[in-house]
Design a protein around this nucleic acid. Structure first.
Lengths: 224, 224
DNA sequence: TCCATTACCTACTCACGAGTAAGACTACTC
DNA sequence: GAGTAGTCTTACTCGTGAGTAGGTAATGGA
């Protein structure tokens, strides 16, 4: 058995589009990135074939190389775009004038909503980005850092008062824990789609804000 | 640039061992698995080369195929062994006679300790196991399920009283969140080794048991 | 109408690495 | 000392898929 790859003989959910002709570069780049995100999400970095990406994008392979460079550069471009979209979504949901716990809640909720509506995007960011070696590790850890800092800031605002602010530094391990908890719940969600984004983010909020000890005693956090 | 692989021209931290001759199968299998875990952890499944594994194991390639089968089977064997070790460690740390929160604490602590002392093992289980496609997905999700159930059980014991037990089912999303939080903190730890296993597991315990809301007000959980 | 530019293609090359064929050497029995 | 079971090796094959050479053809300005 020569390397157990799953065969890919067109049971494809995304059939090769009929090629449209002579579109401006900008449009093609978007199409390519869209295709790349889909395919990377489906197979992971290594198993994803440039040929399939070009197929899904409805364009020939050399165009990808011309516009977005080699495979690793393409992947980095995907990460960059998707990370920006996700972080943007969360940032917008958080209104700095709200009460701290409410801010946290909004952030969590936006996170769950985004992932719910952008599975492929999330898969690339989360599952496929962990390959680790050296090729593009820096780009990957960078986006994670940004996410972490965003959450740490939220927590710092939530945890500090105006007289006694909390160092961002202190919040980092908690932020890491929170992000991980979210990620992991999301994974679990895939196998239990009967839950809603709302229900799950609410559970997470309760766990994180009230703690298990309180929850056992029937105390719950509620959005105001 | 032909596929940007990092070159592997013997800057290797694990130099090819001088080959010892004619050892019994059992011993070789252990050596091979050890080598495989190391190499898989270092490069991930796809980037790991069978040639390098055989080098590190100090044996020739066909022996690997003879004893442990193809690459994917070898990987599954690694997962299986390491998952067993980890789960075993945690199970042993948890004494069912203790108070629920204390049980949870012991479990968390054992988890952090194990990972601290078995980085490669953990890396394979966590980072590399997420490749996703089809080759060995079942084996992978299985170990995760086992871990999840172990935690869910812990939580159920912690959350229920003898009169009013809690369904295991109910605890699953929380278990997922907790496991994820732990995993993520572990990742963060790699970049911040100044923390101890103790300090981090204590932080996680506080977050999970007391909740952020309580912590803000200075309430802390302490082991009895 | 010519020329430059940009969009786009088919049909390759070539390195890599999984997996194997074919046998050698050792150690133990009977 | 012949047979056999188990250990172990060198030196291959061969599919796959990243990346490219070397073009064609549409567009828009001079």
């Amino acid at each position: 058995m020569q390397d157990a790859r799953h065969d890919r003989t067109d049971q494809s959910g995304t059939p090769a589009k009929p090629r449209s002709r002579r579109l401006p570069r900008q449009v093609r780049e978007r199409q390519i990135l869209d295709a790349a995100v889909t395919v990377f999400a489906k197979y992971g970095y290594h198993e994803a074939a440039m040929d399939e990406i070009s197929d899904v994008a409805g364009i020939s392979k050399p165009m990808i190389y011309a516009y977005l460079g080699a495979k690793d550069e393409l992947f980095v471009a995907c990460i960059r775009r998707e990370a920006n979209r996700l972080i943007e979504s969360i940032s917008q949901a958080v209104d700095a004038d709200l009460k701290p716990d409410e801010q946290l809640w909004r952030g969590l909720h936006a996170f769950f909503e985004y992932v719910n509506e952008n599975r492929a995007s999330w898969t690339v960011l989360h599952r496929q980005a962990s390959v680790q070696g050296q090729p593009f590790t820096s780009e990957l850890s960078e986006w994670r850092d940004r996410a972490l800092n965003l959450v740490a800031e939220l927590l710092a605002r939530a945890g500090g008062s105006s007289e006694q602010p909390v160092q961002l530094e202190q919040m980092q391990p908690f932020a890491a824990a929170l992000v991980g908890a979210g990620e992991s719940m999301l994974d679990w969600w895939i196998d239990h789609p009967e839950y809603t984004a709302d229900a799950l983010s609410m559970r997470l909020m309760n766990l994180v804000w009230m703690g298990f000890g309180d929850m056992v005693q029937g105390r719950r956090w509620k959005p105001s």
